[in-house]
Amino acid sequence: MSKQTQYPRTGFIGAMCVLKWEGMREIDRANEKRVNVLSVFWALSLIGVSAAMAFLDLSRDLGFILPLAPLTLGLLCLRAYLKLLREMDELLRQMQFEAMAVGFGTGLIVGMAILSLPIPAPWPTVVITVSMTLAYCGRIVLGAREMARNARAMEEAGE
């Protein structure tokens, strides 16, 4: 059995396998790992700082300094993401840009819809963020499925 057929090429799992193992180079994997690690640290620092601000009796100075931690980590995360985009394989980059366009577009549409509601919507920021994330991830999954389809076509052609 060849290396390419050691994992499924159909369904969600198959699409993700093709994306990760055939669609990414080593440098893409390393850059993505850096973004993921920084994102986790950013999220943890955000939660930690929010909890500290809410439950601890902090001095005024510390109250101003503490939020700088997630801000700094967020900026580092943004820089790592830009590096990822710049060095990314061009097919993946196209997928990322399309996913970003769909994500931000969805955020704008959902945001405008929420603003036009006659009653105040509960948790509008959460609704917008979740819809943007789902749209972004959905586009990535569709791109990965397209990759898996191409991989199957390639195998059927005897490549």
């Binding site: 055939e22 669609g23 180079r25 394989d89 061009e90 097919l91 993946l92 191409n150």
Partner: peptide, 8 residues
């Protein structure tokens, strides 16, 4: 580039 890019 990735193999999938060549394929695409």
């Amino acid at each position: 580039v990735s193999r999938q890019t060549v394929n695409a």
